[in-house]
Design a protein around this nucleic acid. Structure first.
Lengths: 231, 231
DNA sequence: CGGTCCATTGAGCACCATCAAGACTTGTGG
DNA sequence: CCACAAGTCTTGATGGTGCTCAATGGACCG
């Protein structure tokens, strides 16, 4: 009846999530998972396939997207350390709606759906925490829906950049911040536009002295201006 | 320890949802709720206000939307008999993200968040069912996100019309189906466009003999064609 | 018969995707 | 170390979609 700490090496939110498991449950979880480190651009699962596991991100970034009949890739969101991926499909008992792929090298634990669902059924606190998580994530996607429909590309781009320069410790957050190194196409898809339009948008920002584009990536020079554009 | 059937007059999914409550829990729920019938275009709650209740739709249609700083109204979805409204805010303990308003006369029960959360914490089965529900709804909103971004207005309009003519019993579903009576502006917002563009789109459909526009509303003449446009 | 509300229709335009060409970068092999 | 090739980024030109603004046309109502 004591409370164990499974997934104890997992950083961030996942630790909070599973801290409610009983010792036996925790060790069952630990026995069932196998952390795996993916390289950049590897696929965790494909849309339309049965939801056999919930993936718990330990480090790195996972991109969720769909492939349209036209072949176009639509990015729905990204997940980071402490986030769960594939939760919805497993809970609802339906195939994954999205394809999940790493954006950078990432370490991820796969939790088999049978084990996961068993724990959820047994442990009401876990269930409640998942409800809260799902609710928050839901909210984020809904925000994204409104955003994509009613913000111009310039605004979304500014927001995208600002998001990546804000979270760092405020002390060192000088203008010389290290930068986005992904290529234009990837970045464009995350924002929901095309490489060409993104290029123009970035160069417009550069012309205003808000960002600097050197060949190693993008540096933000004027964060306040960027935030202003994000409003 | 016997299983009661609270909210027993409630049609559809809500009945399934609460059928897992114990007798005491069911009567606690019954004592806490007060069904109320709203007129058309009444507001249940406003975005940004604390989430004090979950609303259970007994009949009618509830529209969820946000008001942008520009004053523009963005519709995020609609909810019908058996659906819950405001669930996310209550579960996550955050203010409502949307405003909820009736589209037509609707009967809705307000479940105080304290009572609702108490039941969820006590009853794991209820919690699990909510997880499933939330997961499914989440999925729908994500579909909508992709849809809004990558379908033309014509397609979305066709889908909107088709949805309202399909669900009826297949037997009587002849071409003479009764019609949409809401005004253009409301309809345009539900589809995510403007009244002008919607008017043009509808008249294009009428020119192709797919719908008929008389002043009492819209009738679908060629459902197969409409479904084809929805793909 | 005016007045009001809504639907319709027209004209113009903003935004952004697309297509296409050129510049630059990087990698490879001689 | 250079030359060439492939990939990426940039820049230009063009067009489509749908929003905005504005005017017109009915329908309904007093």
């Amino acid at each position: 009846m004591s409370v164990s700490s499974p997934c104890h090496v997992c950083p961030g939110a996942a630790k909070d999530l599973f801290s409610c498991l009983l010792a036996e449950q925790g060790s069952r979880l630990d026995r069932a998972i196998l952390p795996h480190t993916y390289r950049e651009r590897e696929t965790l699962f494909h849309e339309g396939t049965p939801a056999l596991a919930v993936y718990c991100v330990r480090s790195g970034t996972v991109k969720l997207f769909r492939r349209l009949p036209s072949g176009e890739e639509v990015v729905v969101g990204t997940r980071h350390a402490g986030d769960l991926v594939g939760l919805r499909g497993v809970l609802a008992g339906i195939p994954y709606a999205n394809t999940a792929a790493t954006l950078d090298p990432a370490t991820v634990c796969a939790i088999p759906s049978t084990v996961f669902l068993g724990l959820v059924r047994e442990n009401p606190i876990l269930g409640f925490r998942l409800l809260t998580r799902l609710a928050r994530e839901f909210r984020r996607v809904e925000d994204e829906l409104v955003e994509r429909n009613h913000s111009r590309v310039g605004k979304r781009t500014a927001r995208f950049l600002a998001e990546r320069f804000q979270p760092q410790g405020s002390g060192a957050a000088g203008p010389g911040r290290a930068a986005i190194t992904m290529n234009r196409e990837e970045m464009a898809r995350l924002i929901g536009t095309t490489p060409e339009t993104l290029s123009r948008t970035l160069h417009a920002l550069a012309a205003d002295g808000i960002v600097a584009l050197d060949r190693k990536g993008i540096r933000v020079l004027d964060l306040p201006a960027l935030l202003k554009l994000s409003e």
